[in-house]
Amino acid sequence: MSGVGKNKDLPIGLNQGTKPVVETSKQERKPEKMVKLSNVPALPFTYVAHVLEVAAAVLVLVWNIHFRGGIAWDSTNKSLIFNLHPVVMVIGFLILGSEAIMSYKGLPFSKEVNKRIHLTLHTIALVLGIWGISAAFKFHNESGIDNLYSLHSWVGLGTICLYGIQWIFGFVTFFYPGGSVALRRDALPWHGLFGVLVYILALASAELGFLEKLTFLQNSGLLKYGTEAFLVNFTALVVILLGASVVISASAPAHSEDPHSYSTISDA
């Protein structure tokens, strides 16, 4: 009697009903939906970042050339020496640093080429960052102003030092002489994480610099709701949006090659 209504030749799923099969298929589909939601492409954010980079470069040049009188390394007008600092730090350090971060997995070249571009852009950004900080020290020394008295200067100097450490670590580990396969595999996630943290510190330093300079200008008589004040604030806002776009682009999965490669630059 217990076997009545069951066909031994039918699959077990049909003998027991379709409910378990439906539940299984639902469970299998849930991870797929989660993966699709997390699969944010990096490419659109790189396009946004490129537009914001152009905007930031134009704004900082207009501010320092049109409103502040120009830029110079040597001048009797010491303010022109200082004007070199924000221009070089935004265009040379932040923008090139942004391009270096996005180039690692955003360019449609081979891994080796992307890594070389990544290294080259970071090298140029580091050199220009050191030059920009040197301009600030030069301005202070020639104007009789104390150095390293503000939070902006502390964060900025600390950031450039960490940037240099990051560059040295990346060069030695991934380029020359190159670490072992296991070392590169273990170091790559930390290298990427530390790089993003240093980049965020650079953004924070820039924002502190905009705030500090604008405060000085306003205390010297600049209109709080004048054109220049709005321009400086808008430039700072563009830099924030640029940083957000770059961080999202760096965190999103690559569109082509494996972003978790740990081969040296010289490897094919």
Rank of each mutant, 00 (worst) to 15 (best):
L119M: 04
I168Y: 13
Y163G: 02
A136H: 00
N15D: 07
K224C: 07
P108N: 07
K78W: 00
N64H: 03
F174D: 00
S220M: 08
V60Y: 07
K105T: 02
K111S: 05
S220A: 06
T227W: 14
S266K: 11
W154H: 08
L208H: 10
T173C: 14
A100R: 00
F230M: 13
N147I: 00
R68A: 07
S134Y: 02
L121G: 01
Q27R: 12
V113T: 13
L241M: 15
I200R: 05
F137E: 00
K8S: 11
D186C: 12
V21S: 07
I248S: 02
L148F: 15
V198P: 03
E142D: 05
I65F: 15
L43Y: 10
Q166T: 03
G69C: 05
S266R: 13
V88K: 01
D146S: 03
G5F: 12
V232Q: 03
G5H: 09
A268S: 14
N114L: 01
I71V: 14
R29L: 10
K213A: 10
Y176S: 11
H66A: 11
N219Q: 15
I130M: 04
I165W: 14
A187Y: 05
E112G: 01
Y262T: 00
L43G: 04
G178K: 04
M89S: 02
N114Q: 10
H122F: 13
T159L: 07
S180F: 14
T227D: 13
F171H: 05
N141K: 00
G209A: 06
K138S: 00
V155T: 14
T24C: 06
Y163E: 11
I101Y: 03
F194H: 04
Q218V: 02
I160K: 01
D258A: 06
S134K: 01
